[in-house]
């Protein structure tokens, strides 16, 4: 019997930050983060989902909120705000449920992705900020990163989807080969009504 894990131990999620006016991070760090994202995109586009999910920490949280059309005065100040976890979401996964999605992809019976979609993940506008606690104390080896994505999907004969959006990540420096691991990811898909038949690819 399947058990979905409880929500405790939720990773800190990357707050929205304004990059303009922040001092640029060291070129080596900027380059290392971008290198990591290029490698991550490669795994997704090569259908290496198992290797991809290993980039997430054990306590990772991966969330894709819905986007709202609201009156000016009732609009959320941050689109990633999920009203204390009560607003419905496109994705609200932790590492266990992410692993289950990989299990589904590997089952050979996930017809939405079998045969798999041809995808191309383009990751740009990478903005890196050293993570800090509310009082300003730096968190060693942890980074808040905002980046933009454009994901192209082509499926079966003639199906095309193009999704644009933003990722807000908490990256943790990692001694392993990949350099970083993803402790938290918020995906802001730039659609209110999702214009495709499903969201069966990862962002």
């Amino acid at each position: 019997m399947l058990t979905l894990p409880e929500q405790s131990g939720r990773a800190r999620s990357a707050p929205k930050f304004r990059s303009l006016g922040l001092p640029p991070v060291a070129p080596e760090l900027q380059r290392a983060v971008e290198h990591f994202y290029h490698g991550e995109a490669e795994l997704l586009d090569d259908w290496e989902w198992r290797a991809w999910v290993e980039l997430f920490t054990a306590d990772a949280h991966y969330r894709m909120p819905i986007r709202r059309n609201r009156l000016r005065r009732q609009r959320k100040t941050d689109e990633a705000d999920d009203l204390g976890g009560l607003e419905v979401a496109h994705v609200d996964d932790d590492r266990t449920s992410l692993d289950m999605r990989i299990q589904q992809l590997e089952s050979g019976m996930h017809w939405a992705e079998d045969p798999p979609s041809r995808s191309r993940h383009l990751v740009t506008n990478v903005r890196v900020k050293a993570a800090a606690l509310d009082d300003g104390t730096p968190v060693e080896g942890e980074y808040h990163v905002r980046s933009n994505f454009l994901v192209y999907r082509n499926r079966l004969e003639a199906e095309v989807d193009v999704w644009a959006g933003e990722r807000r990540d908490v990256l943790r420096a990692d001694d392993g080969a990949t350099g970083f691991r993803i402790a938290d990811r918020i995906v802001l898909l730039d659609q209110n009504l999702v214009l495709s038949k499903n969201l069966s690819v990862f962002f």
Binding site: L4, E6, Q7, M64, G84, G85, L86, E87, V88, A89, H90, V91, D92, D93, S97, M100, R101, Q104, H110, W111, A112, E113, E159, V194, S196, K197, N198, L199, S200
Partner: peptide, 26 residues
């Protein structure tokens, strides 16, 4: 909150159950 998490996992455009329905209908 747990119901929200469960629903997001199974139903909706990205739900593990529902993605496969979309493949058929479309």
């Amino acid at each position: 909150r747990a119901q929200r998490t469960s629903a997001a996992f199974t139903e909706g455009a990205a739900g593990v159950v529902e993605t496969d329905d979309g493949e058929n209908w479309d």
